[in-house]
Simulated assay, not measured.
Amino acid sequence: MTSIPLFPLNTVLYPDGYLPLQIFEVRYLDMIRKCIMGEQPFGVVQLRDGAEVRKPGQHEILAPVGTLAPVGTLARVIDWAAPLSGLLQIKCMGMQRFHILSSEQLKHGLWMAQIETLPPDKTIPIPQEQQNVADALGALIRTLQEQKIPPEQMPLQPPYRLDESGWVANRWCELLSLSAMQKQLLLSQDNPVLRLELVQDMLTENGLLEE
Rank of each mutant, 00 (worst) to 15 (best):
Cys173Ile: 02
Arg33Leu: 08
Glu104Pro: 02
Pro8Ser: 00
Ile100Asn: 00
Leu110Gln: 12
His99Thr: 13
Lys107His: 06
Tyr160Ile: 07
Gln96Ile: 09
Thr204Cys: 02
Glu174Ile: 03
Leu74Ser: 11
Arg171Cys: 04
Ala139Lys: 07
Ile78Gly: 00
Arg27Phe: 04
Tyr28Gly: 05
Gln22Leu: 11
Glu164Tyr: 12
Asp135Arg: 15
Pro15Gly: 08
Asp201Gly: 10
Met93Cys: 06
Leu178Ser: 04
Leu74Ala: 15
Leu156Gly: 04
Phe98Gly: 03
Met154His: 11
Met181Ala: 15
Gly86His: 09
Ile90Pro: 01
Glu39His: 14
Leu110Thr: 08
Arg54Cys: 06
Gly50Thr: 12
Glu129Tyr: 11
Ile61Ala: 14
Gln147Phe: 08
Leu106Met: 06
Gln105Ser: 00
Pro155Leu: 03
Ser103Lys: 00
Tyr28Val: 11
Phe7Asp: 00
Leu178Trp: 05
Pro127Asp: 07
Cys173Ser: 06
Asn170Trp: 02
Arg54Trp: 04
Pro125Asp: 00
Lys34Met: 12
Lys107Tyr: 05
Ala136Trp: 02
Lys91Asp: 12
Gln105Trp: 00
Pro70Tyr: 00
Arg171Phe: 03
Cys173Tyr: 01
Cys35Trp: 06
Ser165Asp: 09
Val12Arg: 02
Leu29Thr: 09
Met1Asn: 09
Arg171Ala: 03
Glu39Lys: 14
Ser179Ala: 06
Gln22Pro: 05
Pro8Cys: 00
Val53Ser: 11
Lys122Ser: 13
Ala75Ser: 11
Met154Val: 13
Gln189Val: 10
Asp163Ile: 14
Asn206Glu: 08
Phe24Asn: 08
Thr117Tyr: 08
Met93Arg: 11
Met202Leu: 15
Leu162Cys: 13
Tyr14Ala: 02
Ala136Thr: 12
Leu74Met: 14
Gln153Arg: 10
Val168Tyr: 05
Cys35Ile: 13
Pro64Leu: 03
Gln200Asp: 06
Phe98Ile: 09
Pro120Ile: 09
Leu162Lys: 13
Ile126Val: 14
Pro155Thr: 05
Gly207Val: 10
